[in-house]
Write a protein that binds this DNA or RNA. Structure first.
Ligand SMILES: [Mn+2]
Ligand SMILES: [Mn+2]
Ligand SMILES: [Zn+2]
Ligand SMILES: [Zn+2]
Lengths: 138, 138
DNA sequence: TTCTACTTGCAAGTAATTTGCATCTATGTT
DNA sequence: AACATAGATGCAAATTACTTGCAAGTAGAA
């Protein structure tokens, strides 16, 4: 937890208890979670923590590239650590989330951008799959 | 505009002026648009049209598979006709949207699902690309 | 033409996220 | 170690996209 504090300070942000705890939650969690989920988790550790603080931190941590927002067709935003780029398969019934990496997806981006008339550079992309997990498809 | 009316009736929905006008807007429009955009457009054609009607119709037309919701990282939903499956490249600066089809993306789904431990069937997927268009990247 | 289920307009309600502001605190400086 | 201050936080109020309840209207079947 040493590098994190320096990283934050270097970006002009303070390593507050709330912020460190939030990052910690994501370090110990492999699937995307919502502000509300972070909040519930944090309440057990920090008395007097407010959801607003969660929202503000999820937002700033995301712009700094420490977290990233994941769009999984929910009516609220999900976040996860912004390490090792990957995609998700989501069960639309029970919300099980499996993540996967696939080089070909990434290679395809080049092919696609070459064919494009209006774009020459890509900043990011999303590739998410929705279906029923084995348990739910019975 | 004959087939549409029958299609709607067959699904137990009435071919009301509002509903037909909404479908028409999408027929004459190639990029995903929001409820608010549909509303602005409709106001010039139907006096006394209410946004609620737009929301309700976008929703029902989507569940019927006539429209589909598109997720482009906006804070509102976008919709487009649910014909010929495709994906988008979006300019994060000026919101220009280019659409493309790519067989390989679709083929990849099979490869991915085979490697999955928890999923065997896919219902849908999203693959959206974000970057700067030529005009905006100067 | 009549009947009725589906629609619509309008007002009010939700739910997620944001903002204003007074108070507080982590960190650099003295 | 005490100080100064930019950045954080809690709390309440505001925003915003979207939904819901209800009474009145209308498309389509008979
Ligand atoms: Mn993930
Ligand atoms: Mn499209
Ligand atoms: Zn499942
Ligand atoms: Zn552009």
């Amino acid at each position: 937890m040493q590098g994190i504090k320096e990283l934050l300070n270097k970006k002009g942000h303070k390593a507050t208890p709330a912020r460190l705890a939030i990052i910690n939650i994501f370090k110990n969690n492999k699937k995307p979670i919502s502000a509300e989920e972070v909040y519930k988790n944090l309440k057990t550790k920090l008395k007097n923590i407010n959801v607003t603080t969660i929202y503000r931190n999820l937002s700033s941590l995301s712009s700094e590239g420490i977290l990233r927002k994941v769009d999984l067709k929910k009516d609220f935003d999900l976040f996860e650590l912004n390490e090792d780029h990957h995609h998700h398969i989501v069960c639309t019934d029970c919300n099980k989330i499996e993540s996967f990496k696939n080089k070909e997806v990434e290679n395809l981006l080049n092919t696609i951008i070459k064919k494009s008339n209006n774009f020459k550079q890509i900043k990011e992309h999303s590739f998410e799959i929705f279906g029923l997990c084995k348990a739910c498809s019975k």
